[in-house]
Design a protein around this nucleic acid. Structure first.
Length: 458
RNA sequence: GUGGCUGUAGCUCAGCUGGUUAGAGCACCAGAUUGUGGUUCUGGGGGUCGUGGGUUCAAAUCCCAUUAGCCACCCCA
C-alpha cells in the first residue's frame, strides 16, 4: 500500500517552536498595548452563518469566503433543476449554510448586536484570532492568517481615531519596526467625488486612486477614464493626487477646494481634529495624510488608516477605519464604530526580513538536569520542583542516555543551563551547574543556582 | 478568476545539446571522546528524479497531460 504523502492545504502553514515564540512576541506586544488602553478580549467561532458574512466585503470579498459543505444528506436539499443546470451560484447557497470567518470586524458587529443588552457602550474590545480567505496565496498572502483587532463601538468621538493611531505607533515602536502610518477620510473622498462632478461614482474613483503608489498617475488616470469619468473630471482630480507637502498644507488646500461640499468639509474637519488631539502625544513614526488612500472594504465611512513598513515592501501590515452602520444590517441602527487590525503574519515576515526577533535562548526551558540513573534522578527531581516553584522552567532528561546525547539535547533546544549531580555532588549536597553559553561549570548549592537562574530570566 | 515560473535525498540545490551503478552542501546516525554540547576529523543510512502517458536502442534530461508549490495581476492583513 502506498504511503500517504503528508501535506497541508496551500496557503496554510505549520509553525515550529521557534516560529511560535516569535509569533507570540508579536501577539504579546499587541495584546499588552491593547490592554494598557483598556480594551477587553472576546472570541467568536471560526465559522459563522454564511448569511452573516455574505455581502459585507464587496463582490470580491464574497468570492473569497471559504464555505463549509453541509453535513449529512445535503444533496437532497438541493433543487433538482439547479443541480441539472449546474447553477453554481444557486447551488452553493443550498449546499452550504456556514462559512469560515473572513475577518474579525463583521463577526464583532454580529456579536455586538446579539449581545447588546449585556454590553456597556462605548464597548472597547480586542480580538486576536485566525481568519480565512480563499485567495490565491503569494508573498505575504496566506489563506489562513491571524488578525489582531481592536475596536471601539458606540462612540462617535474622534478621540478614538487618535487613540488607535497612538496604539499603532506604540506597537511598532515596541516591535522595533519603522512604519509609515497613512490616513485619510472617506468623507474627503466623497467630497472630492462631488467636487469633480461624479458624486455617485465614489467606489470607482477610490478603487482607481488607491493604486496610485503602485501604478502611477498616468495609469490611474487611464483607469478613471475606463471607469467612465470624463477627461475634465480627471484633470480636476489630478492636482489632488499629486498634492504633496505637510499634512497641514494638504488640509489647507482641501479646505479651499471642498468649500462647497458639506461632506468634504466634514471630512477635513475630522482629520484636523484627529491631528489636534494627537499633537498632545505626538507619534514617533511618520503620520501622513494620504489622499489616495481608499481601502477596499465597503463598510468604511469616515477615517481610514493603513500602515506600511518603511523598510520592507509588504503591502499593508495594519489597517482600519470608521464604519457608521455595520451593526445596522443585524438590526442595531445608529451605532458607529472604529477599529484597527494588525496583520500578525505580515508583521512576522517584515520582522523576519529585518532580523528583528529577540534571541530565544531559554524561552521554553532554562535548565536541563542530566539523568545519570535512578539514584541521581531522585536526587535531582526535588531540586527541579524547587526551581519550578519560583518560576524557573526546567526539565530532567527522561532516560539515562549518554551524557553527550543529553548535552546535545540541551544545546539544540537552546537550554542555557545544565544541571549535573553524580556521586561526588550528592556526597556534598551540591550540584554542578554548566552555563552552556560560556561553557563554564561550577559546583553550587541549590539556592545559588536558583539565584543565577532568576537573574537570567530577569 | 487571469497570467508566468518551478517540482531531483528531511532541507537548499547541481546534473551541459537524451548515453553505464544520479551528485554536493546542510541535516540525521555512529565513532574519535564510557561525566560534558556547540568547533574539528572519520565513517554510514537515505532518492522507483511530483504523477500518468508518449517519442527513442536508451529519458532526471525531449513532447503531452495531470497534480502540487511559488511569483505577479485582481484584491487584501
Amino acid at each position: 500500500m502506498a504511503k500517504e504523502k503528508p501535506g497541508i492545504p496551500k496557503g496554510t502553514r505549520d509553525f515550529d517552536p521557534l516560529e511560535i515564540s516569535r509569533r507570540e512576541h508579536i501577539f504579546d506586544t499587541i495584546r499588552e498595548v491593547y490592554r494598557l488602553h483598556g480594551f477587553r478580549p472576546i472570541e467568536t467561532p471560526a465559522m459563522e452563518h454564511l448569511s452573516t458574512l455574505m455581502g459585507k466585503y464587496g463582490e470580491e470579498g464574497d468570492r473569497l469566503i471559504f464555505r463549509i459543505l453541509n453535513s449529512g444528506d445535503f444533496t437532497s436539499k438541493a433543487d433538482d433543476e439547479d443541480w441539472r443546470d449546474k447553477n453554481i451560484a444557486r447551488l452553493s447557497s443550498q449546499l452550504s449554510e456556514k462559512a469560515l470567518r473572513y475577518d474579525l470586524t463583521v463577526p464583532f458587529a454580529r456579536y455586538v448586536v446579539q449581545h447588546q443588552h449585556n454590553i456597556t457602550f462605548p464597548f472597547k474590545r480586542y480580538q486576536m484570532q485566525p481568519v480565512w480567505r480563499a485567495d490565491r496565496p503569494q508573498k505575504g498572502r496566506y489563506r489562513e492568517f491571524f488578525q489582531c483587532d481592536a475596536d471601539v463601538i458606540g462612540s462617535d468621538s474622534l478621540a478614538n481615531e487618535a487613540e488607535f493611531i497612538q496604539i499603532i505607533d506604540k506597537v511598532f515602536t515596541q516591535l522595533n519596526v519603522k512604519v509609515e502610518i497613512l490616513f485619510n477620510n472617506r468623507k474627503i473622498l466623497a467630497g472630492l467625488a462631488e467636487h469633480i462632478g461624479f458624486a455617485d461614482r465614489m467606489q470607482d474613483i477610490t478603487l482607481a486612486i488607491d493604486k496610485m503608489d503602485r501604478i502611477g498617475l498616468d495609469n490611474v488616470n487611464k483607469e478613471l477614464l475606463e471607469r467612465g469619468l470624463t477627461m475634465e473630471a480627471v484633470e480636476k482630480l489630478k492636482p489632488v493626487l499629486q498634492l504633496s507637502g505637510s499634512n497641514a498644507e494638504k488640509i489647507d488646500v482641501l479646505t479651499g477646494m471642498l468649500a462647497s461640499s458639506p461632506v468634504g468639509m466634514k471630512g477635513v474637519a475630522e482629520v484636523r481634529e484627529v491631528l489636534d488631539i494627537l499633537s498632545v502625544t505626538p507619534p514617533h513614526n511618520l503620520l501622513k495624510l494620504d489622499l489616495c488612500l481608499a481601502r477596499g472594504l465597503d463598510y468604511y465611512t469616515g477615517a481610514i488608516i493603513e500602515v506600511k513598513s518603511q523598510d520592507v515592501p509588504m503591502g499593508s501590515i495594519c489597517g482600519g477605519g470608521r464604519y457608521d452602520d455595520l451593526t445596522g444590517v443585524f438590526g442595531l441602527e445608529g451605532v458607529s464604530g472604529v477599529g484597527i487590525s494588525f496583520g500578525a503574519d505580515r508583521i512576522y515576515d517584515v520582522m523576519q526580513a529585518l532580523d528583528r526577533f529577540p534571541d530565544i535562548t531559554g524561552t521554553f526551558s532554562q535548565l536541563l538536569a542530566v539523568n545519570f540513573g535512578p539514584k541521581e534522578r531522585d536526587y535531582c527531581l526535588p531540586a527541579l520542583e524547587n526551581l519550578r516553584s519560583v518560576g524557573i522552567q526546567c526539565e530532567m532528561y527522561p532516560e539515562p542516555a549518554r551524557v553527550k546525547k543529553q548535552m546535545q539535547y540541551a544545546d539544540k533546544n537552546n537550554i542555557p543551563f545544565v544541571l549535573m549531580a553524580g556521586e561526588e555532588e550528592m556526597k556534598q549536597s551540591l550540584f554542578s551547574l554548566k552555563d552552556m553559553r560560556s561553557g563554564e561549570q561550577q559546583r553550587l548549592m541549590l539556592e545559588q543556582i536558583s539565584e543565577i537562574l532568576l537573574k537570567f530570566i530577569g
